[in-house]
């Protein structure tokens, strides 16, 4: 399943980068993900409940952010496992600066599906991809809207940049390195 899309946000490239590096934001915008638990630097465990059309299932998975080139691009790798099939996702995220303080986010990637969803879902996969794409952008848009005030000063941007991941409660799952 190909996932592809682009959208302009009325924030600077740096601001958008900071949002996207925030696990809380990532959790908000990743379709179906209800929370991300940090399990290492740029590595998260995700818990999600996906409901798309007639399909409803719980997924557990891992997400990691790699190949970071601040503030221009990064890659999200995700593995989502469920009873009805798994998704191995790799998405290239690019942020471009446009005139007028606009950041253009473009993503391009694919989700390799397996199991029952791969075997029976073909008919509607392009619809699923569209829904997911829209969800990402609208959630991000919403988040930006809600947080406009808090990131308006350069200072706050700087302060966010220095946020460190919280102390790990669980040891890092070695399997996380095997994603993608």
């Amino acid at each position: 399943m190909v996932v592809k899309g682009n959208h302009d946000f009325k924030v600077s490239r740096e601001q958008l980068w900071i949002y996207l590096m925030d696990p809380i934001v990532l959790a908000k915008i990743t379709p179906g993900v209800s929370r991300l638990e940090i399990i290492g630097e740029d590595k998260f465990k995700s818990v999600s409940e996906i409901k798309i059309g007639p399909v409803k299932a719980s997924f557990t998975g891992k997400l990691k952010v790699v190949d970071k080139d601040q503030p221009a691009s990064f890659v999200i790798k995700m593995e989502q496992l469920s009873r009805i099939g798994n998704a191995h996702v790799s998405v290239q995220m690019n942020i471009e600066e446009k005139e007028g303080g606009i950041a253009a986010l473009a993503f391009d990637g694919k989700a390799d599906l397996s199991g029952v969803i791969a075997r029976t879902g073909q008919r509607v996969l392009s619809g699923v991809a569209n829904v997911i794409t829209r969800e990402v952008f609208s959630a991000l848009e919403k988040h930006i809207e809600e947080n406009k005030q808090t990131v308006e000063s350069e200072e706050s941007i700087q302060s966010m940049k220095t946020i460190k991941p919280p102390e790990l409660e669980d040891p890092i799952d070695p399997a996380i390195n095997s994603i993608g």
Binding site: D112, S114, A118, R123
Partner: peptide, 14 residues
């Protein structure tokens, strides 16, 4: 089969 080896029309719906 798709390039990952999934039989993507593995039911009578496809």
């Amino acid at each position: 089969y798709d390039e990952t080896g999934q039989l993507i029309n593995g039911s009578y719906m496809d």
